[in-house]
Design a binder for these strands. Structure first.
Lengths: 309, 309
DNA sequence: CTGAAAGCGCTTACAG
DNA sequence: CTGAAAGCGCTTACAG
C-alpha cells in the first residue's frame, strides 16, 4: 500500500489499481505525523515575522503582501506554512523550541531589525534559514539602492534644485540602502544631501517633513523611503501651504495601493512585494530540496511616475 | 524520562532533578511528530483565509489584524498556527486533505462569502471549526447591526435629513448585517432608505457615491459599510464639490488606521479586529480542549466621532 | 515485483 | 514510585 501511495514505479498495474480503488473508497489519507517521523521531513516551512509593534500593527500592507506570496508559492509546491509573529523574548524562545523539535524543514525570516538573535541561534543549530533583506546568509532582497537612485535622478532630471530625503530607520537594511541610494545619486549629481529620519510610519513622515521644512525651507523635492511616510509628508506639506508637485515634488517607495489614492497620486518606486514572498520560498526549497546551494535573489525595482513628481 | 518531561506528579524528586539536568545539558527537545502520533493531538490550529482576490490583495488591514490576534492568542497558549490562503478549488482540496490527515486540532475559518463548500466538508468530517461571522456553527462575530444603527442614529441625531448608505456585498454576512442595521434605524426614525451597494473596496465606494449623487442629489449624509468605501466616497464627494461634513456627513465602519488620516478624519464604527482573532482561538480551544461546548461570541462595536460627521 | 519486519521517537497502561 | 513493553501509522531496506 505504501508503495502505491508514494508512487513507486515497481508495482504491478493491477495491484496498484486495486489499492487505489480501496484508497478512494475508504477515503484514506496518510498520517503525516507518522510519515515525517520516519522520513525526517515535514513539508512545512515556518515564516517568522518580527518587527516593532508600531509598524506591524499598522495598516501597512508589506507584511500581508509577503505572507500572500509565501502562501501562494507554498501551496503550488504542496508545502505547508506555519506562521509565527513572536511577541518579545518568550515568543522567540517558543519558535526556537518549535523549530528544534523538527517540526519544520526550514525558516523564512522577515525581520526589520538588522541584528536578530533568533536568526543566529537557528543558523547555529543548522536550520536552513532564508532572510528578507540582504544578509550573510541566503536572502531575498530588492534593489533598494537602485530604486532610490532612480527616484533622485527623476527629481533632478525634472529640474528640481534642492532635493531632501526622509530616510527610514537606520537599524533596517532597507532603510540604510535607500538612504545610500539617495546619497549616491546626490553625490553623482553634485548636490548636497538634506536628510531627516523617520520610522516608516505616516506620523513619523509627517514629523520629518515638518522638520525639513523648518531646517531647509528652500527645498523643492523630497524622496521618502516608503509610501507611508510619503503620505504623512504630503499632509505636512499641505498643512504648510506648499503645493505638490508645483512647489515641492514628492516621491515614495513601495507602491502600496494607497499610493494610487493620494491627492495628488504618488510617484513612487515599485517594489514587488508578493514576489519577495515567492522568492523566499524558492530560495529555501533550493536549500532543502534542491542542490543545497545558496542562490540569493535581488529583485528589481522601478519608478512609476504619477502626479506628485 | 517521559514522565519528567511531561510533568507527571509521581516522580521522585532526585530522579526528576537528574533527568532535568540531562535534558538541559543535552539540549533535548521532544519530537512533536512522535508525540502527536501517539496522543492524536497536534497543538496546531489552521487559520483558513478565503476572500475574493480584490479584497484579499488590497491593503485593507482586516485580514492582517485577524491574523495578528489569532497569532497572539495561540502563542500565549503554546499552540501553533498554520496559515492557509487557498487559491481556487485545488487550494481548498489541499486544505481538506491536510486537515483530514490529522495535522491540526481544529480550523478557524475567515471567509467573506456566505456559502462555503470547504466549511461544510470539514464539519461533515467532524473537524472542529469556528467561523468569523455568524453561522450555524461556532462563530465569532461583531455587533454589525448595532454598530450600523448607532451610525445612523448619530447622523439623524445631528440633524441630517436624507441619510443614504453604501452597503457592502450582500453575499457577505457583515455586508448584510450592516445594511440591516441601517434599515432598522431608518425605519425607526421614519426615514426612507437610500441604498447603493459596493464591494468593500475604495473604488467601489467611489463609484457607489457617484451613483448616489446622481440618484439622490439631495442627500446630506452617508453611512458606508466599511472605511475603505468611505475613503472612496470621500474622494467622490470632493470631486463633486460637496464639502464634508458641511454639505454631506460621512460615517464609516471598522476604524482602520487610515480612518484617522483622511481629511476630514473619519467618524466611524469601531470594530475590534484583533479581538476577533483572539476570540476565534478561544472559542475553538473551548471546543477541543475545554468542555466541548459551543460558546460563540458577539463582540461589541462603538461609534468614534471625528470630523466627518 | 512483493511480503514481512524493523524502526522512526514518543506515551501510557501494566506490573511490580 | 518506576521499569519494561506495547503501540501510534508510517517507510524502507531486506529477502525472496
Amino acid at each position: 500500500v505504501s508503495r502505491v501511495v508514494n508512487n513507486w514505479p515497481t508495482v504491478a498495474p493491477q495491484l496498484r489499481e486495486s489499492v487505489q480503488r480501496a484508497v478512494a473508497d475508504l477515503g484514506y489519507v496518510p498520517n503525516l505525523a507518522a510519515r515525517s517521523l520516519v522520513t525526517q521531513r515535514t513539508d512545512t516551512v515556518a515564516l517568522v515575522l518580527s518587527a516593532p509593534a508600531d509598524r506591524m500593527y499598522s495598516d501597512e500592507p508589506f507584511f500581508a503582501g509577503v505572507i500572500r506570496g509565501v502562501s501562494q508559492e507554498l501551496e503550488a509546491r504542496h508545502k505547508h506554512l506555519v506562521l509565527v509573529q513572536p511577541t518579545g523574548f518568550t515568543g522567540e524562545q517558543q519558535i526556537e523550541h518549535y523549530v528544534s523539535a523538527g517540526h519544520v524543514d526550514g525558516v523564512l525570516l522577515v525581520s526589520t531589525a538588522g541584528s536578530n538573535p533568533l536568526r543566529d541561534t537557528l543558523v547555529r543549530k543548522g536550520v536552513p534559514v532564508v532572510c528578507s533583506g540582504r544578509a550573510n546568509l541566503p536572502f531575498v532582497d530588492v534593489d533598494n539602492i537602485g530604486g532610490a537612485s532612480a527616484a533622485v535622478n527623476h527629481l533632478a532630471g525634472s529640474g528640481r534644485r534642492r532635493i531632501a530625503t526622509i530616510a527610514g530607520p537606520q537599524d533596517n537594511v532597507a532603510g540604510v540602502d535607500r538612504l545610500t541610494g539617495y546619497r549616491d545619486a546626490m553625490r553623482q549629481a553634485r548636490r548636497r544631501s538634506i536628510v531627516a529620519v523617520g520610522e516608516f510610519t505616516r506620523d513619523s513622515g509627517m514629523n520629518a517633513m515638518r522638520q525639513l521644512l523648518d531646517d531647509a525651507p528652500e527645498l523643492d523635492a523630497v524622496f521618502c523611503a516608503n509610501d507611508m511616510m510619503a503620505i504623512g509628508a504630503l499632509r505636512a506639506l499641505r498643512d504648510a501651504g506648499r503645493r505638490v508637485p508645483d512647489d515641492v515634488a514628492l516621491v515614495g517607495f513601495d507602491d502600496i495601493d494607497a499610493a494610487r489614492y493620494t491627492e495628488p497620486a504618488l510617484t513612487t518606486v515599485v517594489q514587488p512585494i508578493a514576489d519577495i514572498g515567492r522568492q523566499l520560498v524558492r530560495v529555501l526549497l533550493r536549500l532543502t530540496d534542491g542542490d543545497g546551494s545558496d542562490q540569493s535573489v535581488v529583485l528589481p525595482t522601478s519608478l512609476v511616475v504619477r502626479e506628485s513628481a
